[in-house]
């Protein structure tokens, strides 16, 4: 650690900052290869996302599911290869925080869509009949 804080290095391994580069001089090539793999995978998934619905290859109603699966896969690629999130014990806290965030995102989006579609279904249509002025 370049910081003045002294630590027993033998216990440092249980914790790492999210996105930290683990370089030890010789690892530059390895680091670049990691990013390159990520770039290739992400580009591949992106290309599939853009071409799949246009190519008439899959059953049309499955397209939204396919797109969402591809998007989540690509987010995973970014997390692993660009932000270096791993399942190792040094990343426990980072992954827990991420899981909490993802849970909240799903609750907010899923809950909102469910509630709002339910309300739209139950409410009388408002088209044009109720013009209110100040």
């Amino acid at each position: 650690m370049s910081d003045a804080q002294a630590h027993d290095p033998s216990i440092e391994e249980f914790d790492t900052a999210p996105g930290d580069e683990h370089l030890d001089g010789s690892g530059v090539a390895q680091g670049v290869i990691g990013y390159l793999v990520g770039l290739v995978l992400a580009a591949l998934l992106t290309v599939v996302s853009f071409l799949l619905p246009a190519a008439n290859l899959v059953w049309p109603p499955s397209i939204p599911v396919a797109l969402i699966v591809l998007a989540i896969a690509q987010m995973g690629v970014h997390l692993v290869f660009f932000i270096h999130i791993t399942t190792g014990p040094d990343n426990t806290n980072n992954v827990m925080a991420l899981a909490f965030g993802v849970l909240i995102v799903f609750l907010v989006i899923g809950g909102s869509l469910w509630i709002m579609s339910n309300m739209n279904h139950n409410m009388a249509p408002m088209s044009g009949t109720m013009q209110m002025g100040p």
């Binding site: 650690m1 910081d3 630590h7 216990i11 249980f14 900052a17 930290d20 806290n93 925080a97």
Partner: peptide, 20 residues
């Protein structure tokens, strides 16, 4: 038990604190 930051090993290093 000794893990820094998320165990009982004392405050984490500044880099980890800031990154987290």
């Amino acid at each position: 038990g000794l893990a820094v930051g998320h165990g009982g090993g004392g405050p984490a290093s500044k880099r980890i604190i800031v990154g987290y």
